[in-house]
Amino acid sequence: MSDSPLPPLREVIARHGLSASKALGQNFLFDAQLLDRIAAIPGDLTDRAVLEIGPGPGGLTRALLRAGARVTAIEMDRRCLPALAELEAAFPGRLQVVEGDALRIDHAALVGEPFAVVANLPYNVGTALFTRWLSGEQWPPRWTSLTLMFQQEVAQRVVAPAGSNAYGRLAVLAQWRSTARLALKVHRSAFTPPPKVMSAIVHVEPAAMPSGVSARVLERLTEAAFGQRRKMLRQSVKALPGALDALASLGIDPQRRAETLSVEEFVAIARALSSGRP
């Protein structure tokens, strides 16, 4: 069913007395053409399972349903549930709304099948959710792609190349076994209310996981290296057992700083540490 019989989103918001909550990091999108462009980024969604986090009154949800997706939406703002219930009724069997905190829910168990994530993430939980999806030893993950709206500064950190000012732990986690690209920039004026910063959409797809590398080891390595990014590696990673020996065996100068190491070099160090034989 098309959402054409549905009232305009602005009307729904007015009728339910909704306003964007700063505490929940909400900013609403009304532009249907822009929302359709976002829903198109993961490719054909016909009959595909999609997980949406923080749908709010359902602007992006409508676009995903228009694209043919079967949507599971997690929303913790009870004010938005009546508006989302109207969408559930308009698209029977195509939308499941779950009230709760997305950080506390097992997404794979909830959806029950491989799923794409498409979300205008609330700014206050976006990075935490993203790093959670990128973490863990199980690979490939249950998600088939991540199409996520971030503040532009965060989005640039995800796709940053080594040596750039934006390069850091987030870039390594996003790129060591995934491909990440900046898919779309979104002007602040597209939102209601307009945020103080520009936004951008990142699209991530799983890639082959390098052999012999523990994800937990790599996470600990990048956390140590970038936790003290102004320091040389010999200082920032010395607390990790075997790290300095690994640098020596790989010919990596311990006087370098973390932001100068490529993703491949981080993977090589993590492989040495994972094997226990640097």
Rank of each mutant, 00 (worst) to 15 (best):
S4C: 10
P141A: 10
K238A: 15
R256S: 00
A268T: 13
W143K: 01
S21Y: 14
V202H: 04
A258N: 06
L81C: 14
K185P: 06
A102C: 05
V12S: 02
E223L: 15
S262N: 03
V213Y: 10
A109N: 13
R66Y: 12
F115R: 02
A14G: 15
A258E: 02
L221Q: 07
A190V: 09
A32S: 14
S199T: 07
E259F: 03
A116L: 06
Q228K: 12
L170I: 00
R177K: 13
G251F: 11
L261I: 00
R257I: 02
N165R: 15
H187S: 13
A32Y: 09
R188M: 07
A63C: 04
T61D: 14
S189D: 15
R234I: 04
Q26M: 14
L182Q: 01
E265L: 04
T46K: 14
K22P: 08
L250V: 13
L87K: 03
I252L: 13
Q26Y: 10
A183D: 08
E264K: 06
V263D: 00
E86S: 02
V98S: 12
G112V: 12
A225S: 14
S236K: 10
E137T: 13
R104L: 10
A109H: 11
R15D: 09
H107L: 11
P195I: 13
V154T: 01
F150V: 09
T72E: 13
G25P: 05
E88Y: 06
I13L: 11
L233M: 09
V204T: 07
A39G: 08
P8Q: 08
D44E: 07
V97K: 12
T61G: 11
D253C: 12
L221P: 01
E259M: 04
D31Y: 14
A248N: 06
L218N: 00
A39N: 05
L148V: 15
A258M: 06
E153F: 05
A20G: 10
A128D: 12
L51C: 14
Q156T: 10
P5E: 06
A63Y: 04
R94F: 10
N27S: 13
F115H: 02
I74W: 03
L35T: 00
L60E: 02
L148T: 05
F130G: 05
G136Y: 13
A116V: 03
L9G: 01
P194Q: 11
S19Y: 11
F150G: 11
A171C: 02
F91I: 05
